[in-house]
């Protein structure tokens, strides 16, 4: 078995990863569900009773700001995390 301090460091790295992921999930949930509930759950109509829909890039604006944009931001953050922020461990020998 390798020196204990090395194992302890790996455990700390794992806990750090898990904590960041938990916050990442909570923030995404809060934004997407909150935004879509506020702007996507009420059918807007003009005085003649016609449905009014604002679109961005062909999709409803609530879907653009509530889902598409945060999804792209999440992908960027995930890439940054994977390429720059996540710490490497030396591989373990298979037992």
């Amino acid at each position: 078995m390798e020196p204990e301090s090395n194992q302890k460091r790996k455990l700390k790295n794992g806990i750090r990863d898990a904590t960041i992921v938990a916050w990442f999930w909570a923030i995404s949930l809060f934004w997407s569900i909150g935004y879509c509930w506020q702007y996507g759950y009420l059918i807007r109509k003009d005085p003649q009773g016609q449905v009014v829909l604002e679109t961005i890039l062909g999709m409803p604006s609530w879907a653009f700001w509530g889902i598409f944009s945060p999804w792209v931001l999440c992908a960027i953050f995930t890439a940054l995390y994977g390429l720059c922020l996540m710490r490497d461990d030396p591989p373990e020998p298979d037992q």
Partner: peptide, 22 residues
């Protein structure tokens, strides 16, 4: 359905990093 599937924006992180290294 975009909102139905929206959780997938965090799936790479939750599915691979939350438990992955450990």
């Amino acid at each position: 359905m975009a909102l139905w599937i929206a959780g997938y924006m965090v799936v790479p992180m939750t599915g691979m990093i939350f438990l992955g290294r450990r």
